[in-house]
């Protein structure tokens, strides 16, 4: 449906560009969600959780860059965003979980 047909009347150029950009990102996000759902049912040599978290990280970047406007050249929001996102655990052996687990493993091993 065209923007004109959606709300009636002629749509401003800015609104049309906004809708097109948002629609593309939204479709990408939905596709990624469905891909992660499908992959969850396939045995990926024990990597299912990592794949799911990796796709989640891609979705997060899409949302942050396009919807949260980090693509705008504003340095302070970008700095605050990077600081904030550092607290979301990354799915690697270097994540805080792996670091936290080591002392517990040592305790269990005596």
């Amino acid at each position: 449906m065209s923007p004109r047909g959606l709300l009636g009347g002629e749509a401003p150029a800015g609104a049309v560009a906004l809708l097109r950009r948002t629609l593309a990102v939204w479709l990408g996000l939905l596709a990624l969600a469905l891909v992660s759902l499908g992959l969850a049912y396939l045995p990926v040599a024990g990597w299912n959780r990592m794949v799911g978290l990796g796709i989640a990280a891609v979705k997060m970047l899409l949302i942050a860059w396009f919807f949260m406007q980090l693509r705008r050249p504003a340095q302070l929001p970008r700095l605050a965003a990077v600081a904030a996102l550092l607290f979301i655990p990354t799915p690697t052996d270097q994540n805080p979980c792996a670091q936290l687990r080591r002392p517990m493993d040592m305790m269990r091993q005596g």
């Binding site: 969850a40 997060m60 949302i63």
Partner: peptide
């Protein structure tokens, strides 16, 4: 939304493959 994006694989997708 981002928080849910991470909750979805951790709470719902884990353990589905049976592997």
């Amino acid at each position: 939304d981002i928080v849910w994006v991470f909750l979805f694989p951790l709470l719902y997708l884990d353990g589905r493959s049976g592997a």
